[in-house]
């Protein structure tokens, strides 16, 4: 077992033990802190697929995060008021069940990722960064100016969506749902990384001309990765809306996109558990520094600048050395 595998196992265990210990000590607040870590980590695992493995620097993943969030909010709202959301091709009046919400969140994010990806993947480099940022901003302004679902004020979710067999109102039950989804996404991400598809994706990052010469179309490989990446982030968005029982345009803001990139980089881009470490660290920093000063993001900025200038490879890179394949 390599050092990185050991570290990963330790991290997975730590994230599970944290809320268990908090419950035992009668501190339910820390359970919701751990839930936040798991959800942001899930969103990061999604982005890591595109950014870490594929080298696609998407500055617009908040779009998918927000779409997932709005899927949760809108479906729950319609289910509560028993208003039909769709009358054709089939009758659908929303749902307050998480698995339905996740499915809708994933499908809606996939559609958005297909549209954004099909246009922005025709370009590369700086263009790609700017275009993904611009498209996310488009969804942001749409959410603000579309009055049906709260507009600028956002949308409250009266009761957290349910899951068969569990009481999602209990912090620990909800945490376990998020944790299991995170682990599933990590397994998926690991299998993808070591698959033929993953090899093609990573090869396209290193040299797309050679990949094309081998008969693999980099565009289609990247588009598939981008869509899958958006879907995972979308599901994370649905969980995030359920955690806060609130969704607002700020979930789609450029700051959110930036934070998702930041937590991957803090952890280590392209490393399987990079987003997990990053999310744990990010939430912890926010909690500790946010408790000290309202201006905690100033310190986040300084730390981030330090990591970029002096500690490339993130925390995992510092702990177990740089990845073998650059």
């Amino acid at each position: 077992m390599s050092r990185e595998t050991l570290l990963n196992a330790g991290l997975a265990l730590l994230l599970l033990v944290l809320p268990l210990a908090a419950t035992a000590l009668g501190e339910p607040f820390y359970v919701s802190l751990a839930t936040r870590m798991a959800i942001l980590a899930l969103a990061g695992v999604g982005l890591n697929l595109a950014l870490g493995f594929g080298g696609l620097i998407s500055f617009g993943h908040a779009a998918f995060f927000g779409i997932g969030g709005y899927a949760a909010g809108i479906l729950a709202g319609h289910a509560l008021n028993a208003e039909p959301l769709l009358s054709w091709p089939f009758e659908f009046s929303g749902s307050d069940q998480m698995h339905v919400v996740w499915l809708v969140a994933a499908l809606a994010s996939a559609l958005a990722a297909l549209l954004i990806g099909a246009i922005s993947l025709r370009t590369s480099g700086v263009y790609f960064i700017m275009i993904t940022l611009a498209f996310a901003q488009m969804f942001y302004y749409f959410a603000i100016s579309w009055p049906a679902y709260g507009g600028e004020d956002g949308l409250s979710i009266a009761i957290r969506n349910g899951f068969p067999g569990l009481n999602t109102a209990l912090p620990m039950d909800f945490f376990l749902i998020c944790y299991v989804l995170l682990m599933l996404a990590l397994v998926l991400s690991w299998r993808i990384r070591d698959s033929r598809f993953g090899a093609a994706l990573q090869a396209a990052r290193q040299n797309d001309v050679r990949v094309a010469a081998l008969g693999i179309e980099p565009f289609r490989t990247r588009l598939a990765a981008f869509i899958l990446s958006g879907m995972i982030t979308g599901v994370a968005g649905a969980l995030y809306a359920d955690l806060n029982r609130f969704v607002s345009p700020s979930m789609i803001s450029w700051q959110m996109s930036g934070e998702l990139i930041v937590l991957i980089i803090l952890g280590g881009a392209g490393r399987l558990f990079g987003p997990v470490v990053g999310a744990m660290l990010f939430v912890l920093l926010e909690f500790l520094l946010g408790g000290l000063t309202e201006r905690w993001q100033l310190f986040l900025g300084v730390i981030l600048l330090g990591v970029v200038l002096f500690a490339r490879g993130g925390v995992i890179g510092l702990l177990v050395g740089r990845a073998r394949h650059g």
């Binding site: 500055f59 960064i129 981030l304 990591v307």
Partner: peptide, 10 residues
């Protein structure tokens, strides 16, 4: 992107 994002925060 990251370094200038950090500069925005600062």
């Amino acid at each position: 992107v990251l370094a200038t994002f950090a500069l925005i925060l600062i």
